[in-house]
């Protein structure tokens, strides 16, 4: 019978969990590619818009971004979150004995701290009259930091899942729940590193001098 289906394995079959894990990682990588495309287009728009005469860069000496102390604190918080996740990930094969739970909480709390820190800086800007509608540079600042914050808020849901799964491991340590918790931690780690890199790029760009924008614009042929 020609059309018969058979189930003879040709290659060593992957377990259900291996497939699920590989799928989740591929899915995350694709998501990061789509998000990167979005930020890249925002950054190009930023550079292009910065070359119009009404642009008042926030990084001029008399402007708020001349003092980046608050933003450096925020950056440090996000860095701590990323490092905590990385340590949890490296510890992943023996996390029953390790301090994975504490690391996860550290990551979550410092990410939360980052979000609060960003909001504090927003408050500072609005208090001093730097509204989104008053200048395109301000508008871009709110827009880009806001979107980055939203991506981190999305990540916090994944963090909650990871924390929950780790709790389940504590209650019944079967292979399945261990694998799920590991996968969650791995995915969160990748995503946090990604968000850290995006933030550092944004921070570098937002706090650069108008001369830098002009140079980038010229390099891109839009100066």
């Amino acid at each position: 019978m020609l059309a018969q289906t058979t189930s003879i394995p040709i290659t060593a079959p992957r377990s259900y969990f291996q497939r699920r894990s590989a799928s989740a990682k591929t899915g995350l990588h694709l998501l990061m590619a789509a998000i990167s495309s979005m930020y890249l287009l925002f950054l190009l728009s930023y550079i292009l818009r910065s070359q119009v005469s009404d642009w008042e860069a926030l990084s001029e000496p008399w402007q708020p971004l001349a003092q980046t102390g608050q933003l450096w604190i925020n950056t440090a918080l996000l860095l701590v979150a990323s490092i905590a996740f990385e340590m949890a990930r490296r510890n992943i094969d023996r996390f029953e004995q390790g301090n994975t739970r504490e690391l996860l909480w550290l990551a979550g709390l410092s990410s939360f701290g980052f979000l609060i820190g960003q909001l504090v800086f927003w408050q500072y800007l609005t208090d001093h009259g730097y509204l989104a509608s008053s200048n395109p540079a301000n508008a871009f600042f709110f827009l880009l930091t806001g979107l980055h914050g939203l991506h981190l808020v999305g990540g916090m849901f994944a963090w909650m899942v990871a924390t929950y799964r780790l709790r389940v491991v504590g209650q019944n340590g079967d292979n399945r729940s261990v694998s799920l918790a590991k996968l969650s931690i791995e995915l969160c780690t990748t995503y946090w590193h990604f968000l850290l890199v995006i933030w550092m790029l944004l921070f570098a760009l937002l706090s650069s001098s108008p001369g830098t924008y002009a140079a980038i614009a010229k390099f891109c042929g839009i100066g």
């Binding site: 508008a139 827009l143 979107l147």
Partner: peptide
């Protein structure tokens, strides 16, 4: 699609809160 997303968000802000993207 992110390009449409980016332009959509910026136009929405131009319309609603008066930015000038």
């Amino acid at each position: 699609f992110p390009a449409l997303f980016v332009s959509g968000i910026m136009m929405l802000l131009d319309k609603t809160i008066g930015t000038s993207f």
